[in-house]
């Protein structure tokens, strides 16, 4: 479990992290969302002791990271896949991490296999790695000590589609065995598919947090029909406000089951009926962080 309490980090002139509190629970994947420069990475750096907080605390299973006797065995960390000595081979980077943690060398081979780096790739220097390969190596380093907590900053960056699916399965499996995963990303689709809980940060402040279901409950329903106007009228008669979204789409805050029932009673054919979740996270993200977005997007 990761607990962050009233965490603040100020730099000369601005506050990168402003009184942030949240908890990442075991057995769940917690998605950490926010626009560029919102304070995600700073928060994660404070968690692992690379940045000293101005005030507040961050603890892993109740202990400060710096007080853990051998942190690599309890917390797997990947903050920046490119932050490796470019002149070392992938295998050497895993070897020195394994040696530092006091792990047997066979863990290095196990990890290389787990993250699908071939032995010839592992012999190459990291300078010649693609971002995706560095990301895999970083994930291998994080998992090396068989930790129960993972802190990953943008781990899907640079991975190919197969890699993204692999990572998704890996993290879901990790959480289902009781592990704690905190994962930051700005790839909303990724987070939506994988996260159980969400923490949204904007300009250093938490703007929303809770389970994904809770946060997306307000997302409503998207329904498509050859006669959208009739459907909108039928919904209105049933006391459900709705809006025409173009191309036959009607959007409403009601849940899909109710909308389907109304359409059935009114005898209106539907071509599609689904929860608006797919667009919900993006809408939610943009509206929650609207005043913190660089582009000033009005959601």
């Amino acid at each position: 479990m990761i607990t962050v309490e009233s965490l603040t980090r100020r730099y000369a002139g601005f506050t990168a992290v402003d009184n942030v509190s949240f908890t990442a629970l075991p057995g769940r994947v917690t998605g950490f969302l926010g626009p560029n420069g919102a304070g995600k990475s700073t928060t994660m750096r404070v968690m692992v002791g690379l940045t000293v907080p101005t005030s507040g605390t961050a603890t892993i299973n109740g202990e400060r990271f710096a007080d853990l006797p051998n942190p690599g065995l309890e917390v797997g960390v990947l903050l920046d896949a490119s932050a490796q000595h470019a002149g070392r081979t992938g295998r050497e980077i895993l070897t020195i991490a394994a040696d530092t943690m006091g792990l047997p060398r066979r863990r290095v081979d196990e990890m290389l296999e787990l993250v699908s780096l071939t032995s010839s790739e592992a012999k190459r220097r990291v300078r010649n790695y693609s971002l995706g390969m560095r990301q895999r190596l970083g994930i291998g380093t994080a998992l090396l000590g068989d930790p129960r907590v993972l802190i990953l900053d943008e781990p899907a960056n640079g991975l190919d589609p197969a890699g993204i699916r692999w990572m998704r399965d890996l993290l879901t499996g990790f959480a289902s065995q009781g592990g704690t995963v905190l994962l930051s990303s700005h790839l909303l689709h990724e987070i939506e598919v994988i996260a159980d809980d969400l923490v949204v940060i904007g300009k250093g402040k938490i703007v929303a947090s809770g389970s994904k279901e809770e946060l997306l409950a307000a997302a409503g329903t998207l329904v498509r029909s050859p006669s959208p106007r009739d459907l909108a009228h039928a919904l209105e008669r049933a006391g459900i406000p709705s809006t025409l979204a173009g191309d036959g789409w009607v959007r409403t805050d009601a849940d899909p089951a109710r909308v389907g029932a109304v359409a059935l009673t009114a005898g209106i054919a539907l071509t599609e009926l689904r929860s608006a979740e797919g667009t919900g996270l993006e809408d939610m993200f943009l509206s929650l962080t609207a005043d913190t977005q660089r582009e000033g997007v009005a959601a």
Partner: peptide, 24 residues
């Protein structure tokens, strides 16, 4: 959407604190 199925007994359980030795 894909829901994560979590075995109920692991949801609340804190992972057992291993007895890690300090790094020499």
């Amino acid at each position: 959407m894909t829901a994560t199925i979590v075995p109920p007994d692991t949801i609340e359980a804190e992972p057992a604190r291993r007895t890690a030795q300090p790094i020499r």
